[in-house]
Amino acid sequence: MEGLQTERVQHWRRTRAFTVLIVLAMLIAITFLISMDTGIIRLPPMDVIRTLFGQGDAKQGLILFDFRLPRIVISVLVGAGLAISGCILQGISRNGLADPGILGINSGAGLMVVLFISFYPVNATAPAVLMPFLAFVGAALTAALIYVLAFKRHEGLSPSRLVLVGIAVAAGISAVMMVLELMLDPENFQFVAMWLAGSITGTDWSYVMALLPWLVVLVPYVIYKARVLDVLNLGDQVATGLGAPVEKERILLLGAAVALAAACVAVGGGIGFVGLIGPHLARRLVGGKHQFLVPASALAGGLLLIVADTLARCVVPSTELPTGIVVAVIGAPYFLYLLARSQA
């Protein structure tokens, strides 16, 4: 009787999780359509539909296909990638405050991109596909440094120490980037300032193609490792007792989280808090099983960023705010709320 009741509960949870995933996907689709009509130059819904089917004029086609669609697609991809990265970090560290931005991984990726811009002029044709690789190098070195400083031989990886070390390393990297910014010429300085603020403006389909392969390879891998994340979330001793190679799996998953965050930062700029809010929202909706938590985090992160990007284009008339600022307005109070609750 108890077995039958347990099976019914599990079936109900699976049904609820699939329903949540479908609803999140539908909300992204609706926001996608609204976002195509949002901007300094308005495109009425019927004009958007006609342009999508090749019936619009040259100006409408330029606005929609060359400017808005790449930006909207990148918003969804970057939001999904950052949210999955945060989900992995929260799982392997057992810390709800873990986030690639808070832990300094985004800063490490940003530092490498700023170094690249310092020696490579903005007006030159920089290969977009190279940026994620450079950002990955910076993010990987930063993650390795944080891991070494936070890990203790007899205590393992302390969740609180991980966050504190990450914040300290991020502060140090931010100071280095400020020094580098002061050495840039005005054109490069303006570009870096907008990029660090999380501005997705100026993107095109080449950036979509530079980011997409990273997600296509890494997201299925993370979903495949969902059960491993469930085991690691139980603690090192329990995971070892269940036969899981804890350190090996943690390093592999950490590498996936770093690669996702680095690729997203290289394309989307310094956007924070998505990796924090996305997994928390998903966990409230589908529970803690990573089989559903990972895809739900991706959809929640994509929805958050596309909504923020849409708001960034319509909050202030005749201008566009950096998307990262809108996300920070939402994310900073939420982070403080989680921090206060964790200390309670």
Rank of each mutant, 00 (worst) to 15 (best):
L141S: 09
L254Q: 04
T319Y: 09
V9F: 04
V246W: 01
D47F: 00
L97E: 13
A266M: 09
L212V: 09
A226K: 04
L141K: 04
F67I: 14
A256L: 03
A262L: 05
Y120A: 02
D236L: 13
W214C: 04
S174W: 04
V294R: 11
L293R: 06
F335E: 14
A144D: 00
I271A: 04
L82D: 14
L52M: 11
V20T: 07
A282I: 01
L103F: 05
L338H: 08
K225T: 11
M209R: 14
L77D: 07
S342N: 14
N233K: 10
A340H: 05
A266C: 13
M194Y: 10
V76C: 09
Q10R: 11
P44H: 00
Y147Q: 03
L134C: 11
L218A: 15
G278T: 02
P220R: 00
R68Q: 03
A135P: 15
F119Y: 04
G172F: 02
A80P: 04
R16S: 09
G255M: 15
V192P: 07
L196I: 02
I40G: 09
F53G: 07
I102E: 13
S35K: 03
L229G: 12
P121Y: 14
L134E: 08
T323C: 02
G272Q: 10
F18K: 10
V122N: 02
G56V: 03
